[in-house]
Amino acid sequence: MKRDLALLLGILLALLAALLLWALHATLALEPGPRLAELASARLEQTGVSNPVTAVLLNYRAYDTLLELAVLLAALLGIWSLGPAPAGYQRSGPALAALVDWIVPLAILAGGYMLWVGGHAPGGAFQAGALLGAAGVILRLSGEPSAGLPGEPAQRWLVVLGAGVFALVGGGLLASGFGFLTYPPGQAKWLILLIESAATVAIGVTLTAAYVGGRPGSGTAHNGTGQSRTVQR
């Protein structure tokens, strides 16, 4: 019965896929419509960055990116609302710990590099933030329960830093007559770097905090919820 249903659904979805393939084929066979690629590269020089993807993300379509940071934050707020962080992992042995001592600073350095290079080569705030997040994950796996994150108050400020700086820059530009996220000529490069730096930190902290998987407890708070934060040693 269940097998039959799976088969039936499989056939239906194969039909759907065939229909979509046909639609895609029909479209590609037509004369390709005017794409944004030419336009995007024609204006690239005015965007303040030379990596076209960064230009789209932080200049042409910066509004999307701002909201994307809000989505990331909403997910973390949802995770925090579900309870305190579960217990950490067993602390790693000396050999692994020594390795972690090397990997984590390296990941942070690589993140900084990736942020800087994102202006003109592959890379940028999200990749850099992900590297910071990876450093956090490694720290947590090695037995650091807080994954290297600061206490709750600082953590809260850090996770809103990205969207906050972004929105404030946007709002400031609006208030000074340029329009929301419309960078004044010549200023784009520095404003984008400012936004990207803040976003990198926020993304790194948010991803790490999401991996930790619960409200940051400094060990004393939130015991009323009945969950003990025990760390194995």
Binding site: R35, L36, A37, A40, S41, P52, V53, A55, V56, L57, Y60, R61, D64, T65, E68, V71, L72, A74, A75, L76, G78, I79, L82, F126, I203, L207, A210, Y211, G213, G214
Partner: peptide, 24 residues
């Protein structure tokens, strides 16, 4: 074309956010 690339980057971040929330 860099525009779809940027869209996908946004989509990836949205997807991982949703994944984290679902798992929590």
């Amino acid at each position: 074309d860099p525009v779809p690339h940027a869209l996908v980057l946004t989509g990836i971040v949205v997807a991982v956010s949703a994944t984290a929330l679902v798992l929590a």
